Simulated scan of single mutants.
Amino acid sequence: MKFSIRGGAPLDGVLTYDDSEYGFSFDARSPKALGERLGTKGVTSALIGTLQLEIDVESREIVYVWGYFPNVRGDVGDLEVPVASPGRVFLSSDDFLEAGVSFDVPGKPWRVTYDPSSGWVALRLSDAPATLVQIADGTVVGLDDGALVSLWLRPVFSG
């Protein structure tokens, strides 16, 4: 499974983590902007455990992150604030996508680190350097040679 980076602005919105529901949600500020990223063939999700990266089937773009994720504060530690370039990330391999049928992102174990001083949550396969791309407000994707190797989330905590 390979991903590629293209230029473009991150999706504007609010990433929220609801402590009472143990989950992430993303609310786009503009339904029109979200609609422009979604085609007519539906969506699917790439899974890191129960966390879902919503992917438009037609364009193959990772649009936002959402889903049940109870161990968001699993390991507390210091994180360097990620320096990311704005852009868009697309599934570039020929993997078949079907609306509503999720698939796992390769690689395990994903290590989760939460930094209470910065509010960032990092899901990483390793500490190796990666190209960081901000795809949406509060959401940064890390790629290494086309492989998804990290996900950096800075939600608003509620609940």
Rank of each mutant, 00 (worst) to 15 (best):
S4G: 15
A9D: 14
A9F: 08
P10M: 02
P10K: 02
G13H: 03
V14I: 10
D18G: 06
S20D: 14
Y22G: 13
S25F: 08
F26D: 13
D27G: 09
A28N: 14
R29Y: 12
S30W: 06
S30R: 00
K32I: 12
A33G: 06
L34V: 01
L38K: 06
T40N: 03
V43P: 05
T44W: 07
T44N: 08
S45F: 09
A46P: 05
L47H: 01
L47Y: 00
L47N: 08
G49T: 03
T50I: 01
L53K: 00
I55A: 06
V57N: 03
E61R: 08
I62Q: 07
Y64L: 03
Y64P: 02
G67T: 11
Y68A: 07
P70H: 04
N71H: 05
G74W: 03
V76Q: 14
G77W: 02
L79F: 10
L79S: 13
V83Y: 00
A84Y: 11
A84M: 12
L91C: 06
S93P: 10
D95P: 00
F96G: 06
F96M: 06
E98C: 01
A99S: 14
V101R: 01
F103V: 04
D104R: 00
V105R: 00
P106M: 03
P106D: 07
K108Q: 13
V112H: 10
Y114S: 12
D115N: 03
G119N: 08
A122H: 12
A122Y: 09
L125V: 04
S126I: 10
S126W: 04
I135M: 11
A136M: 07
G142Q: 12
L148P: 12
L151M: 06
L153N: 10
P155S: 05
V156S: 13
F157C: 03
